[in-house]
Design a protein around this nucleic acid. Structure first.
Lengths: 243, 243
DNA sequence: CCTTACTGTGTCCGGTAGACACATTAAAGT
DNA sequence: ACTTTAATGTGTCTACCGGACACAGTAAGG
């Protein structure tokens, strides 16, 4: 598995030349997932897009789980190059870039959850986020927690705003709001604060991401100002190992 | 669908007495999901726990999607009663309660994603969160964005820390860390900041939730202090409707 | 040239969600 | 009391899914 995600091209020896490559399989899977959602990705469906049958795919991939992992790391790609910025602006840009990636491949939100082996691109994203915080004086754990915090917001906002091709029940944002309005109308007294909040909603969308980011960055700023900034690479409390 | 989530017991008329109720179906599904994960929940499996066959379930439920929605709202339950607290402490407690719920029913993290119709309990959670922010002077949109921000953190942290019965590839936290350590060892120079951060990790776990919560609450506090607190129910900018 | 490792294929299995026709049941209308 | 009728549960059937496994063909190494 780690070999699939991290290993280069296979070391060929005897036998017939493979008709397809892992990259081609992943590309086909990504195309399907982008167009019709992750649920539309099946081994048969992928094989249909390639000059092989379903079972041939298992010569290149141990199972669907691993294939989706490879697809995910490829689709995620490395973080885009950005000029050096102060940590706050760097993290802000990083978050928007991440959000952009999830918008382009909404199914990544489904495939990159829970405990899993991390691919090179996913680690590159982490690396880039940590790099932004390197000079702030935060401990390693705090840095990790910070990018985890931002990632949480980005993921959930992307989940809410993007429209999944397949998978979901085909509800539009309209449907949800209408249904909610009906409920608030009939169940009048049960949700007073919710009703009030909904009534004072302005129409702009996707403001949730900016709002959340500014709150998080404000909170981090408060913490950073309380720390003594140290040169990168020197730890304030060099603790070896874990546990 | 809205009837299933919000409607009371069915209005019976002619025909044989139902052998089972929707509540029993949901309870059986919840039991299976709690014990073996959401993937173990199938119509056949549920029917096996009840004195009916698989197809009988479709007399009470339009499809599996709707059943899982009902299961989710029931399993989530209403937020626990808490004494009145200042908004910051109230939100903090609210977040921990929410985290607790996701810990008790990890599959809720899978079943309550994306656009969907909201059930009464889910709305009660929102209502409770908004109630905490009612007197802060934040606008309705800001209040909604705030609880969305906190929910994002809670969800992602729960996702990371809880162990899913089925579904995942059976990786332990140990496995992930070991794999990551190997990668950082072999791919030495590619992830310098990540390597540094991992090296300075202390052993305590679940600190990510507290860290994130404090950052968010700090950020919200900064915003609230910039607003004039107004009595509940009076809006600073009463904008009618949406869009 | 032959051996051997590797690739792709077809068949099969157990599982899934759901459509649909059918017999049975019990309440409503007469 | 009898008939009508709506609702319930069942069995069968389809179309998928991931994957195990045996088998035939291919191409490189000895």
């Amino acid at each position: 598995m780690t070999e699939l995600l991290w290993g280069g091209p296979p070391s060929r020896s005897r036998g017939p030349k493979p008709a397809i490559t892992l990259a081609e399989i992943a590309a086909a899977g990504i195309a399907i997932a982008d167009a019709e959602g992750l649920d539309a990705v099946s081994m048969q469906r992928i094989a249909g897009e390639l000059p092989v049958t379903k079972m041939a795919l298992y010569r290149h991939v141990p199972g669907k789980t691993e294939l989706v992992a490879v697809m995910s790391d490829i689709a995620m790609g490395p973080p885009p190059d950005r000029p050096d910025l102060p940590w706050r602006e760097a993290l802000h840009t990083w978050a928007l870039d991440l959000y952009d990636g999830f918008t382009r491949h909404p199914w990544l939100l489904q495939s990159t959850i829970g405990r899993r082996l991390l691919g090179p691109n996913e680690l590159l994203w982490m690396e880039r986020g940590l790099a932004a915080l390197a000079g702030t004086g935060l401990t390693g754990g705090e840095q990790l927690d910070s990018i985890l915090l931002i990632t949480s917001l980005v993921r959930n906002l992307a989940q809410q705003s993007t429209t999944f091709p397949g998978h979901t029940t085909g509800l539009t944002e309209e449907d949800m709001l209408r249904s909610l309005a009906e409920i608030l109308a009939t169940e009048a007294g049960r949700f007073p604060h919710l009703a009030t909040a909904m009534r004072t909603l302005s129409g702009s969308e996707n403001q949730g991401l900016e709002f959340g980011l500014q709150r998080i960055l404000d909170g981090l700023d408060l913490l950073v100002r309380g720390r003594v900034a140290v040169p990168d690479g020197i730890e304030t409390f060099p603790i070896e190992g874990r546990g």
